[in-house]
């Protein structure tokens, strides 16, 4: 029957669509996220009239640069089928650590590498526990969460102001393009996104990340360097945590040990909304960026409405649920095909 149909030319376009869908089914959730983002932005513009302004959109990136960086690291981890609960507290720890060091007069060119190294160190700990001691990522990164939060309080129980010019420069400088602007923190975040996307798409390391998410055992039997890659994704996530600590410190002008409580959940929600499968093997860094923008837009809309910020989490929770159910349906369908 199908043989007859394929002879007409229109249907061969249909076939092309079908071939695309079959080859690239994993992009569909990300496309859905983009659609939701567009609907949100247009809806907000229609509702408020002054939402889609260069100023407002520039602020979306500025206010969520740290979240974007965390989401990139989290994407690597989740695509391998793992999870990293430590990112929020790692960010708080490196932030307060940096603030404390700057306050005691240590030069910035030492402080920044130490912040990054601090994040990477906790990431390494988690990665080693996961890879070499067969600890579930959930539990290992839980230890990282406790450790980061506790260490943040060990550094200081209260907030520390940052007055270091280079750090503040990151936030206060505005590169203007018409009415649009971007800060160095925003540029850093976008560079991290680009780097993450490139690494995932065209390096053997990135492909190994996907292979591990597909089947870790297979990846190992295929002779890929599974152990190194699995540790590395947590190091990358920790490094992103350290960098996010820097960005958040610059953004808020202070280090504070209570920063980032619950941020890990926001990050996971953004990554999932962006189309990454929590079971691993599928997902895109660029999708996670879309997820962050969806999150950012919802937050902004709620503050535009003057509503309780508690709604943010309720809506993000609902959106997360929607995506999970959709993903579940997609996976169920592709399972049935085999």
């Amino acid at each position: 029957m199908t043989a007859v149909v394929t002879e007409t030319p229109e249907v061969s376009t249909m076939d092309r669509v079908r071939t695309f869908a079959a080859r690239r089914a994993s992009v569909l959730p990300t496309l859905a996220a983009i659609a939701i983002l567009i609907v949100l932005l247009i809806g907000a513009q229609v509702e408020f009239g002054n939402f889609l302004t260069p100023r407002n959109l520039s602020a979306l990136l500025l206010d969520h640069a740290y979240l974007l960086v965390l989401a990139v690291g989290m994407t690597f981890v989740i695509v391998t089928g793992g999870i990293d609960l430590s990112v929020g507290s790692v960010m708080a720890f490196t932030g307060i650590l940096g603030a404390q060091m700057l306050a005691s007069g240590i030069p910035v060119w030492i402080v920044v590498p130490v912040m990054l190294a601090g994040g990477a160190a906790i990431g390494t700990l988690i990665g080693v526990l996961v890879q070499y001691f067969n600890v579930q990522p959930f539990i290992a990164s839980l230890a990282g969460l406790f450790l980061g939060r506790g260490l943040a309080y060990v550094v200081s129980l209260s907030s520390i102001r940052v007055e270091n010019p280079p750090i503040l420069w990151l936030q206060q400088t505005r590169f203007l393009i018409g009415e649009w602007y971007i800060t160095p923190t925003g540029i850093i975040a976008l560079v991290v996104v680009a780097a993450g996307a490139i690494v995932m798409a065209v390096t053997r390391f990135g492909r190994t990340v996907y292979a591990i998410g597909g089947s870790e055992q297979s990846a190992r039997l295929m002779g890929l360097s599974v152990a190194r890659t699995k540790v590395m994704v947590y190091v990358i996530s920790g490094l992103c945590g350290g960098l996010a600590g820097l960005l958040l410190t610059a953004y808020s002008g202070a280090g504070y040990p209570r920063y980032g409580i619950g941020t890990e959940l926001d990050v996971i929600a953004c990554v999932v909304i962006g189309g990454t499968l929590l079971t691993g093997g599928r997902g895109y860094v660029l999708g996670s960026m879309v997820g962050v923008f969806v999150f950012a837009t919802i937050t902004t809309i709620i503050s535009f409405m003057g509503a309780e910020q508690a709604w943010t989490h309720i809506i993000v929770g609902a959106l997360l649920l929607l995506f999970i159910v959709v993903q579940r349906a997609i996976v169920a369908r592709s399972d049935r095909q085999t």
Partner: peptide, 14 residues
């Protein structure tokens, strides 16, 4: 993990 994450996120908001 995911199913209960939804309520973990939204619950405190509620």
């Amino acid at each position: 993990i995911i199913a209960t994450l939804v309520l973990m996120l939204a619950g405190r908001g509620v």
